[in-house]
Design a protein around this nucleic acid. Structure first.
Lengths: 267, 267
DNA sequence: CGTATATTTGATATCCTTCAAGGACGGTGG
DNA sequence: CCACCGTCCTTGAAGGATATCAAATATACG
C-alpha cells in the first residue's frame, strides 16, 4: 500500500549511509528529509574514543548527551565493596544521558569497549527537537522508555532467572538490538564483551558465566566462537530464556496522535 | 531571595491541597497558575481501585497512562517458572505507562496494594503538554528518566549488594520518595509492603527477607514495627547500604534551557 | 472468636562465589 | 620466525549466601 506525499513536506527513503539513529527511527516512521537532515547535522560534533577509555565518570559533571555512532560502550557503577555492575550496554544508535538533568553530577561511569565514535549533543538540541519536530520528540521519548524496558527486563533476569537463562536472555537481547541497527544478521553477531563483562552485567562471577556458557553450548542454546554468537536452535533458546522481544519493539509514531495515524506509519 | 513576577504570567504558590504530581513538579520549579490548573484538570478522570485489584495485565492492551494519586501500586511480571518479580513500586505522584507506545500490549501487570485512587490520562494529554507547556514537558521527561534511575539502582542492588544492603537501600529509597510527596517525615513512614512483596521486589525469598530484617533491626540500621519504618542511625544506614540519593533528585527546570535559567528555579 | 494472612524459626539443599592454577590465544619485539 | 607476555578462557575444589521445605507463632479482619 503506497502512501501519499503530504503537500509541502518531502518524505525520504532512508539513505544507505544513514546514521544508526536515523536508521532506528526510520524503521517505523517515514521521516521527512528535513527531519533526517536535522538528525544528521545534530551529530556533526564527534569524538573518537579509544578502546578502554573512560569518558563519563561517576560523580563528575555531565555536560552533554552522547550518542553512540560506532562501537560498544558500557555504563556502570562501582560499589564500595569494589564490585562493578554494568547498568547497560550502549550500542550504535543509543543515547547516553538523554533527558538527564545537567545540573547534577553523573550517577554512572561509561567506558568504550571498542574503539568508538560518539556524537556530542548539546542539551539545547534536544529541547529544539521537542519544539520543532514532534515526531522526532516522540521518538526520543520512546527511546527513553525503551531504555527503561531493558533495565526492567534485566531486573527480572537478576531477580528471577537462573544464570543460564539470564545469560541467554541477554545474548538474545543483544541480537535483536544489533539487528535493529543492521549489525547482526539472522546468522548471529559479533560480541564485544568478555565473559567477565557479561558477568558484571548479569550479576554473576566470571567462573559461573563460563560454566553457564559451556552448558548453553552443550545444549545447543547459544554458542560463542571467536566472538561470534550463534543460536543453533532459536525457538528453544527463546523459550528456555523466557525471551519476549516486546520490550525491544520498534518505535512507531502513531502513539495516539490522531493527526499522525495512518499517515506516516509504515505498513 | 524573592523572585520577580514575570509580566503576563502569574506564578502561584503550591496550594495546600495540591495533587502529589503538582507537589512533585512544584518542588523545584515555580509553576504558573495555568500550568497548575492544567495538571489538576488533567487528573479529573479518576478510578478507585480496591486493594488487591489487578488493573493492568501483562499481554493486554494498555490504552491510557495512569497516575497514582493515593495508595501504593506494584508493577510486576510473572515468569513461566511461577516467580513474580516486582519491577517497581508506584507511589502517589508516579505515572504508570508514561510515554509508552499504546499500539503495543502491556509488558507488565499492575496491582493496587492498598485501596488506591488513580487518574486515567488520555495519551493525547501528554502530547498536548509537550506542545503547550515546555516546562511541564521537561518535567515529564525527567520523571521518565528518574524511573530509569530507580531501575538502574535496583539492578545494582540485585547484582552487587548483599540481601541486607539491598533491603536497606530499598527502604531508604522509599523513605526519600515518600518524603518528596509529603508522605514521610524525618521520623519514618508507613510501609504498605509485606515481607513477601519486599522479597519479590529485591529478588529474595520471604524467609531471607525476614532474617535480613531482623539483622537490620538488631544492628540499629532499620526497624519495621507494625508497618512503621524507622532508621535509628540514619548515617550508618546510608553508609551500610551504599545509599546515594542522587538518583532520586528533584526535578529542576534549568536543564540547560537558557531562557529558564535563574528565572523560575527555586533557590 | 475463628479464619486467613503475615511473620518467625529450624533444618537441609543448592546455586553461585571464591580461590587457585593451567591452558589457549593474540600481539609484540628481538 | 619464535619466544615472551598479557589477557582471556577453562577447570577443580571448597566455602558461603540464599533458597526451599516445614511448621509454629503472631497479627489482622470480618
Amino acid at each position: 500500500m503506497k502512501q501519499n506525499q503530504m503537500p509541502g513536506k518531502s518524505q525520504s527513503a532512508i539513505p544507505k549511509d544513514a546514521s544508526p539513529l536515523v536508521r532506528r527511527l526510520g524503521r517505523a516512521v517515514l521521516l521527512t528529509t528535513e527531519e533526517v537532515d536535522y538528525l544528521e547535522t545534530m551529530q556533526v560534533n564527534q569524538a573518537t574514543i579509544a578502546k578502554g577509555q573512560e569518558f563519563v565518570l561517576d560523580g563528575e559533571p555531565l555536560r552533554v548527551t552522547f550518542l553512540v555512532r560506532h562501537g560498544w560502550v558500557i555504563r556502570y557503577k562501582i560499589t564500595p565493596a569494589g564490585r562493578r555492575l554494568i547498568i547497560g550496554v550502549s550500542l550504535p544508535g543509543d543515547f547516553i544521558g538523554l533527558h538527564v538533568n545537567f545540573n547534577y553530577l553523573s550517577i554512572f561511569s561509561a567506558t568504550a569497549l571498542t574503539n568508538a565514535s560518539i556524537a556530542l549533543i548539546e542539551p539545547v538540541r534536544i529541547l529544539d527537537i521537542h519544539r520543532r519536530f514532534p515526531v522526532l520528540a516522540s521518538g526520543l521519548d520512546w527511546m527513553t522508555v525503551r531504555h527503561s524496558n531493558i533495565l526492567a527486563e534485566h531486573k527480572v533476569s537478576l531477580g528471577a532467572r537462573t544464570a543460564a537463562q539470564r545469560i541467554l536472555h541477554f545474548l538474545l537481547e543483544l541480537w535483536i538490538r544489533l539487528e535493529q541497527v543492521g549489525l547482526a544478521t539472522s546468522e548471529g553477531y559479533e560480541i564485544e564483551l568478555t565473559q567477565e563483562q557479561i558477568g558484571d552485567c548479569m550479576g554473576l562471577s566470571t567462573v559461573h558465566v563460563n560454566r553457564s556458557l559451556s552448558r548453553l553450548n552443550k545444549e545447543n542454546l547459544a554458542r560463542i566462537e571467536k566472538g561470534w554468537v550463534t543460536f543453533p536452535d532459536v525457538s528453544r533458546a527463546v523459550s528456555f530464556a523466557d525471551f519476549d522481544a516486546r520490550f525491544l519493539m520498534d518505535f512507531s509514531a502513531s502513539t495516539g496522535t490522531p493527526n499522525l495515524k495512518g499517515r506516516r506509519l509504515r505498513n
